[in-house]
């Protein structure tokens, strides 16, 4: 295989591999951009990266190919998924453009940029392919190691420092030190009274539930649904079910059924009247 890589043109096998996997990579990239949900985007990106890892291997960069799979696809993309989970679903997931003209400008710039890049590559005199047979003769990892620990040793040391700094920085950014005592329940209640909003506890969801109690808003005394009773994520997704319209008729039917069950239609009424 090493000898084949040294050739000017590639083998048919590689060509086949390029066209198939290249198409997959491009589709993956496009999906990354246009998928509505961040989780899907992350998965598509992971696919593209795996394809790229294969291309690295095909180009004789065995070490990098493995690193690509282990580090990128394995570690970094998982990190992304964790953050997606942490952040949850937000309005940012909407693909609706809010800045006027931004999408058109972006597409125009992208198109122009791409054409220019392609033109640049086409113009460049890239006729000579030496192949990596010579360079990889002592083994790809050994070759890289020889370079890293000789010519690039300073850069290598610097990346070590960079990684430590990044780790410390991430900790500093995400770590919140509690600078004051946590409020007790009593204090929280007093604060609520002081602010004058929501004196009673928030209404619980699922009142008058019929299917999935969590997505149905509780009703206020006047029959209107309360937004506060459903979780924010559901509200953002627009998955709240409003029962206010059917609530009253349902209530009447429910009461009727209860009366029937208890067979005290008349006595109940007289009982109410006597009260």
């Amino acid at each position: 295989m090493t000898h084949q890589l040294a050739a000017y043109t590639t083998s048919t096998g590689e060509a086949f591999q390029f066209w198939v996997l290249g198409t997959v990579a491009v589709i993956g990239a496009l999906c990354t951009v246009f998928m509505k949900k961040a989780v899907h985007s992350a998965l598509c990106l992971a696919g593209t990266m795996i394809v790229l890892a294969v291309f690295y291997l095909a180009n004789g960069a065995y070490f990098l190919g493995v690193v690509q799979i282990v580090v990128y696809t394995g570690a970094i993309m998982m990190l992304f998924l964790f953050v997606v989970m942490l952040v949850g679903v937000t309005a940012a997931d909407s693909l609706k453009e809010t800045i006027k003209g931004q999408r058109w400008l972006a597409l125009l710039c992208g198109l122009g940029f791409g054409i220019l890049l392609v033109a640049g590559i086409g113009n460049a005199a890239l006729t000579e392919f030496n192949g990596l047979g010579q360079a990889n003769s002592g083994g790809n990892v050994e070759g890289l190691a020889a370079l890293i620990f000789t010519d690039y040793v300073f850069a290598f040391e610097l990346t070590g420092a960079l990684l430590i700094t990044a780790a410390v920085g991430a900790m500093v950014l995400t770590h919140r030190e509690r600078t004051e005592r946590a409020k007790t329940q009593r204090e929280l209640a007093e604060q609520r009274v002081r602010e004058g909003k929501h004196l009673p506890p928030l209404p619980a969801p699922g009142v008058y539930a019929r299917h999935n109690a969590v997505d149905i808003a509780g009703l206020l005394p006047d029959g209107t649904p309360s937004e506060l009773t459903v979780s924010k994520t559901l509200r953002d997704r627009g998955q709240v079910r409003d029962v206010s319209a059917e609530a009253l008729s349902d209530l009447k039917a429910l009461e009727q059924r209860a009366e029937d069950r208890l067979e005290r239609t008349n006595s109940g009424k007289s009982g109410e009247a006597s009260k």
Partner: peptide, 22 residues
Amino acid sequence: GYARSYAVSMFGGAAILIAATL
């Protein structure tokens, strides 16, 4: 104030630079 608008400008500028180089 939108970072994305500024990014478009940068991207357009980069495109113009490549065009000029070519």
